[in-house]
Design a protein around this nucleic acid. Structure first.
Lengths: 212, 212
DNA sequence: CGATCCCTTGACTTTTATCAATAAACGTGG
DNA sequence: CCACGTTTATTGATAAAAGTCAAGGGATCG
């Protein structure tokens, strides 16, 4: 069961946009970024992938993105054909497969709201909240959590520039909402404050409900 | 086979964010918008849905969005439980189901790039190209196509304001790339020009390929 | 310990949003 | 079918937010 893993060093690519999508990968350890590049070089990061998550679930013939290691990464590689056959054969696996894709879609939708309608400060706060939760921290916790990616990665994920991200991180530190411990570790100091800044949807259903 | 359809009039909601997601809908005729609202009232449109497309494929317990009719819409309603059972029972249907979800995810990813990294003009041009293609028009065609949604809908979909959308539509008209025929119909006059403005990724793989 | 890379901060510019005033399209009823 | 009222869109002037350019400061890694 414990299959061998491959190592991808920080900064190296696991797959390139345009490569034949013959494999599916499970991240065993570390963090990766999923990028897409515009013709003139602008970069968008579609998502970050952490240990336990899967890359390549929904690809067609070719990968539509480049996947690069942020830290040293350990991955398990599976032949797509074998993977798909296994999923197809097992109803439980099938359900899990669909659930994973749906989760990815849900995350993408939240990101569209963030990119389309939130201010720079709200974007950074939302991102920090998401990272905090991913680390398994409670919304009231003040424990530290990692931010393995660079400011540039954050900027390309949040649709901002590195300078804007940096300024907002500084501002949040100054106002005591977070406390930076080096560049890649944050201690939440006031998670409620972060949450308030994030402007996250608590669905004001009543407000919208005018017509039947 | 030809089940009865329900009618949703322009401006009415088919489902509300927060409603129990007990049904799946197929749009038979017309166009809808899928919206999410932030607590302070800001609105994001996640996608537009046209005839032949399905709403509610990936929802959990509750709908995470509000679906409103842009034009008069005819929908076929299916009980989710029946729908899921049918999909689960038929391998071909299962594949189609997964393919549809993947398509939605692909669209969401392209939208993330648009919202995160494209200028206002590029966003509008990309949108017009997409609408042109959806209408079945060739990239060299100069036929007219419909834009059923309002400028506000476009703005909320593209992460812009109504004024910016309007200004850019005017600019594209002035420069002869499109020709407006009323508010809701566009004649492409120079699809290549639109395409060039759209800054769409033609994956410059070679450029990026530095490291092994 | 030194070199590099990444990040931070400041000054200034650009883009897009906001506010406000028309103007054009649409729908309704006469 | 036309006139009117309403809604939606356009345009202009101004403001705000974020981007760009540039200089320095801190981490981090051999």
């Amino acid at each position: 069961m414990t299959q061998k893993t491959e190592t991808v060093h920080a900064g190296e690519a696991l797959v390139w946009q345009g490569d034949a999508a013959d494999d599916v990968f499970e991240i065993v350890e570390g963090a990766m970024r999923i990028c897409r590049i515009l013709p003139d070089g602008r970069r968008a990061i579609l998502r970050f992938v952490f240990a336990g998550e899967v890359i390549g679930l929904t690809e067609g013939e070719e990968f539509s993105f480049t996947a690069e290691a942020i830290t040293t990464v350990a991955v398990r590689r599976m032949r797509r054909s074998r993977f798909e056959a296994a999923v197809d054969a097992d109803p439980a696996l099938r359900r899990e497969h669909v659930a994973l894709i749906c989760q990815e879609l849900t995350a993408a939708q939240e990101q569209m709201v963030l990119l389309g309608r939130k201010s720079a400060e709200e974007r950074v706060a939302s991102f920090l909240v998401a990272m905090m939760r991913r680390a398994g921290l409670d919304d009231r916790s003040c424990a530290a959590f990692d931010l393995p990616m660079t400011r540039l990665d954050m900027a390309d994920y949040l649709g901002l520039t590195i300078e804007t991200v940096s300024r907002i991180m500084s501002k949040l530190s100054r106002s005591g909402v977070i406390a930076a411990q080096g560049r890649h570790q944050i201690r939440g100091r006031n998670a409620a404050g972060l949450l308030a800044i994030a402007a996250d949807e608590s669905a004001p259903r009543a407000l919208e409900r005018r017509a039947a």
